[in-house]
Amino acid sequence: MLDIKSLSIGFSSYSFGLKKHTVLAIRSLDLSVSKKEVLAVVGQSGAGKSLLAHALLGILPRNASLSGDLTFKGKKLTPKDMALLRGREIALIPQSMTYLNPLLKVGVQIARAAELSGVSPKASWKATLEALRRYRLEEKIARRFPFQLSGGMARRILTATATIGKADLILADEPTNGLDQATAGETLGHLRGLADAGKAVLLITHDIEAALSIADRVTVFCGGVTVEEARASDFNGSGKLRHPYSRALWDALPGRGFVKSLPARSPISSSGGCPFIFFCEKSTPLCEGSLPGIKNLNQGCVRCHHA
């Protein structure tokens, strides 16, 4: 469905006066997601995960520059296409209720989303009620305003809004932030359900446990670079993980090693090399100098000189 090869996103910004410099926020991102599949993108906070969603929707700020190959349903994607596909073929489930218009009844908002994605105005209300039923919401909820919803209901409304059209690729950006365990579980369940119904789901999150509960495959992201692509079942502590960063991330969970698992910090700095060099016990001058290429390994991929 979606195939991204060596995507990079940079920002040009001013330091002082008219002096400019470019910062690469995403250096090299590779991922692919197909039908009936949940792909989780996990990794460092601030590694540019949300930028990926913004790039796919074509809503990057103006000083951003994008390069790399994006293929959607076999066709090359340009930034112009993205703006056209947004909401129609690629839909976003946003982080929180603040993405709903506080002054409009939620039913109207869902119906509007349906119309934008090509449902005729006459059929849109019917589609809205159907969508509500699908997410176990009563019909009268359609006449409520966003502030009258509980956290869990708001989640279901957001999911309904994103999925009412014919979008085949669903992006979910940190969908479980700030939710209690029960609501988070329910939200994740909906995402799994969407994938089972034939859509492709891209789940962007920092919460690796949440991601593992529903994902088929996991793409691990560190310092603007994809370092590993693994099956979700590889995260089981049996040493199947391919990249040292994935292992460190997994071992740092509070239920596992937590602070005791932290390796010593090395003083080497990296600008062109491997992004994980600061913590890696295996790092060598080779890692410092060059970004490793992607290797296939045990039905996954890894970007490490030593794997």
Binding site: S45, H206, L249, A252, P254, F258, V259, L262
Partner: peptide, 17 residues
Amino acid sequence: TSMLDALTQAIIWKAVL
């Protein structure tokens, strides 16, 4: 640290402890 990934969380708590 609830908005942070597991590794960053562990790094911060190690320093705080």
